[in-house]
C-alpha cells in the first residue's frame, strides 16, 4: 500500500518536474527569439525542411480528405435532398477542423519526429554540450529557427491543405456525382464566414507552436527521460513519445479552442 503511494507521489513529482522544464524551455525560446542577432538563413533552411518538404504529403492528404468528405457527404445529404449543401459542408469541415488538425498531425509525423530525433541525437552525442561550451546559445542556434519556421510554414500548409481538399471535394461532388457546380461554389461563399477562417488561422498558429515546442523539448531533454534516453533505442523511444504526446495535445487543444471560439 505504502509502495503504491510512493510510486504515485514519485509519478506526480516527475510530471511536475517535466512540466516545469517544458515551461522554462518555451520561455527561454521566446526570450532567445526576441534577442538579437536575428539570422535569416537558418530560418529559410528550416522553412524548406518543415514547409516545402511537407508539401507533397499535405497536398496528397488534403486532396483525398476532400474527396472522401464529398463522397460521404454526398450520400448523407442525398437522403435529405440537400446535396446542394455539399460545397459548404466540405469547406466548413476543412476550414474549421480537418485542415488545421490533419495538417498538424501530418507535420508531426513528417517533421516533428525528425526535429525530436535530430535534437535528441545531438544531446546524446554531446553536441549540445559542445555548443554551450563554445558560448553558442543552443536555444538561439538550434530551436529558434525551427519555431519561426514552424509558425510561418504550418499555417501556410494548412491553407494548402484546405484548398486542395476543396478541389478534391469538387472533383468527387461536381465531376463524379454531377452536383451543380454553382451550388457547390455558392454554398461555400455564403456559408463560410470570417470567423471560420479566423478559427482556422488561430488553430494552425497555436498548433505550430505546440508541435515544435513538444518535439524539440523532448529531444532537448532526452537525457532527463525517466525511461532512459540513451543510445539508438532511447532516441527512438523518446521520438515515439514526442509524436504521441504532441498528437494527443493537438487533439485536446483543438477541442478546447473550438469550444472557446465557436
Amino acid at each position: 500500500m505504502l509502495r503504491a503511494f510512493e510510486k504515485l507521489g514519485d509519478e506526480f513529482l516527475y510530471s511536475l518536474d517535466q512540466m516545469g522544464r517544458m515551461g522554462i524551455f518555451l520561455f527561454t525560446c521566446i526570450i532567445s527569439m526576441l534577442r538579437p542577432p536575428y539570422k535569416i538563413a537558418p530560418i529559410f533552411s528550416q522553412i524548406y525542411f518543415i514547409g516545402f518538404r511537407s508539401l507533397f504529403v499535405i497536398t496528397f492528404t488534403g486532396l483525398f480528405t476532400g474527396m472522401v468528405l464529398a463522397l460521404q457527404g454526398y450520400y448523407t445529404l442525398t437522403k435529405f435532398g440537400s446535396e446542394g449543401l455539399l460545397g459548404s459542408m466540405v469547406a466548413l469541415s476543412l476550414i474549421r477542423e480537418l485542415g488545421p488538425v490533419l495538417t498538424a498531425l501530418m507535420v508531426i509525423g513528417r517533421a516533428g519526429s525528425a526535429i525530436c530525433a535530430e535534437i535528441g541525437i545531438m544531446r546524446n552525442s554531446e553536441q549540445i554540450d559542445a555548443l554551450e561550451c563554445m558560448a553558442i546559445d543552443p536555444y538561439k542556434y538550434l530551436i529558434v529557427p525551427k519555431f519561426v519556421a514552424g509558425i510561418i510554414s504550418i499555417p501556410l500548409l494548412t491553407f494548402i491543405f484546405i484548398v486542395t481538399g476543396i478541389a478534391g471535394g469538387y472533383l468527387v461532388g461536381v465531376m463524379l456525382f454531377n452536383v451543380n457546380e454553382g451550388a457547390y461554389i455558392q454554398g461555400m461563399y455564403s456559408d463560410v464566414e470570417w470567423a471560420d477562417v479566423k478559427m482556422s488561422i488561430v488553430k494552425s498558429l497555436t498548433f505550430s507552436i505546440l508541435i515544435v515546442w513538444i518535439t524539440a523539448a523532448k529531444g532537448f531533454f532526452l537525457h532527463r527521460e525517466r525511461s532512459g534516453g540513451f543510445g539508438a533505442e532511447g532516441v527512438s523511444r523518446t521520438m515515439t513519445s514526442a509524436v504521441v504526446l504532441s498528437s494527443v495535445t493537438i487533439l485536446v487543444w483543438d477541442y478546447l479552442l473550438s469550444a472557446i471560439l465557436l
Binding site: Q127, A130, M134
Partner: peptide, 29 residues
C-alpha cells in the same frame, strides 16, 4: 556565456557536428 567565451573543449567523444563538414565544424565558433 561570457565566461565560456574563454573556453575550448575537446570532448571524450569529440562531439563534432556530424551533419557538418570539417571546415564548417571549425568555422562554427
Amino acid at each position: 556565456k561570457e565566461i565560456r567565451t574563454n573556453f575550448g573543449v575537446l570532448f571524450q567523444n569529440v562531439a563534432l557536428f556530424d551533419s557538418m563538414t570539417v571546415y564548417d565544424n571549425v568555422a562554427l565558433p
